[in-house]
Design a protein around this nucleic acid. Structure first.
Ligand SMILES: [Mn+2]
Ligand SMILES: [Mn+2]
Ligand SMILES: [Mn+2]
Ligand SMILES: [Mn+2]
Lengths: 219, 219
DNA sequence: TTATTTTTTTAGATTTGTCTAAATTATAAT
DNA sequence: ATTATAATTTAGACAAATCTAAAAAAATAA
């Protein structure tokens, strides 16, 4: 089956929301996609027709097996393009999400397989998010935000928020990137800021805002 | 101003038809775009509203200065992507046109400038068609089809039809590619076939059909 | 349990891009 | 100069994707 750009954006949004909350509501989707709830209802009815999700009026929606596979195909395209934009075209990684939102809808399977090969079959995109393989399999990363990390618990930076602009600049200055080993030494309740220890570096301070945009995997 | 995918496809089609025939008709466009003449009329009225072309009901259409600039932007994107697909992803050049038809509509100027840089500022796409620069300037190639070339007139292959599938295979077998020096030794009126001389090679035979899909610049 | 608030759906309208069938205009033929 | 043919436009319809305003249902509070 073939999906329009609008349909693909809905499918991807449902998939994303479904990760944290298995049942996705109309209002959640409307917020995620910047549309009105009435438009969401219309689209859900159309996608139900196409048999890729279970939609129960008033009770929310959930992608079925086919729907999930389609979503992972779109996510694969999105993340491969993001990797291309950063690794080959030398974009900063806070600029690529918007462009990949468009590129992900180019629908040639052969294009994506060749792109994957050209890029050397990357496992993760520039934000640390795993790239599904051509059959839709993807490693489930179990990472939490640095803000949620316990004190004195060593962890490695495994991801960053893909939407926030200006993040690369501040992380470069703080000498933090994906793969950096970190540990929270002190947390201030006053403003949520953190004192962080990085190997061979003096203690550095991170704001709550910043810590919420960095994701880590505890060791 | 911003243009939809449908609008961009019309603009590009008008530009192409306008090259051989300054005044473009509704039926020509309808054939080129595989739509009905009535749909063309509707779109021409919309594009006239946007002031990128001169459209006189019953008398055809012509892009104005703004329209031509927009067209060249789309053509630039199309041809840069084609170059990328062949040079980097190793597609055969008969497969790339369809994919570039989609990629050309991704609308980030920064993306295209970086892609151009990444590719080393190529001057022509895989079919020998010139790539406009970022301000829309493009060398005007004056090439004719090999079928139209005069006998005994040396010429160099400067382009191939970008739409015909199977062309790379036969040209590889005949040892013809862009840059090859050719000369027609004999033309058979019976079937329009040609006897061609290529440097250091025995005479080869080309069908009329094939000769019409190869473009040359007389020396 | 009833009333209030919030969420969601329905009804009806709009824009874009397409179509078919009919009417109109231009062009070619007699 | 009519008439016939071909090209083009208009009229009216439709699907996709969106919206606003109103109605309905569900969740929450009193
Ligand atoms: Mn998108
Ligand atoms: Mn990403
Ligand atoms: Mn196109
Ligand atoms: Mn081309």
């Amino acid at each position: 089956m073939n999906f329009s750009i609008a349909e693909e954006n809905y499918i991807k949004a449902i998939w994303r929301l479904q990760q944290s909350d298995s049942n996705v509501t109309t209002n959640e989707l409307s917020a995620e996609l910047q549309t009105k709830p009435a438009s969401v209802t219309d689209m859900l009815k159309r996608l139900k027709e196409k048999k890729i999700l279970n939609y129960e009026p008033y009770y929310g929606v959930k992608l079925n097996t086919d729907g999930k596979k389609i979503a992972l195909g779109i996510i694969r395209r999105h993340r491969l393009w993001e990797y291309f934009l950063v690794e080959k075209l030398k974009f900063e990684w806070d600029a690529v999400h918007v462009i990949a939102e468009e590129l992900e809808h180019v629908s040639s399977p052969e294009l994506i397989e060749r792109l994957d090969h050209f890029l050397g079959f990357p496992k993760a995109d520039p934000h640390g998010d795993p790239i599904p393989d051509s059959s839709g399999r993807m490693e489930t990363t179990r990472h939490i935000s640095l803000h949620q990390l316990k004190e004195q618990q060593p962890a490695v930076v495994s991801g960053v928020n893909d939407q926030s602009s200006g993040l690369p600049e501040i992380l470069r200055q703080k000498k933090i990137s994906i793969g950096t080993k970190v540990e929270i030494k002190q947390r201030f309740l006053f403003d949520g800021s953190l004192e962080i220890k990085i190997r061979n570096q003096p203690l550095i301070t991170l704001s709550e805002q910043l810590a919420k945009n960095i994701f880590v995997t505890p060791l």
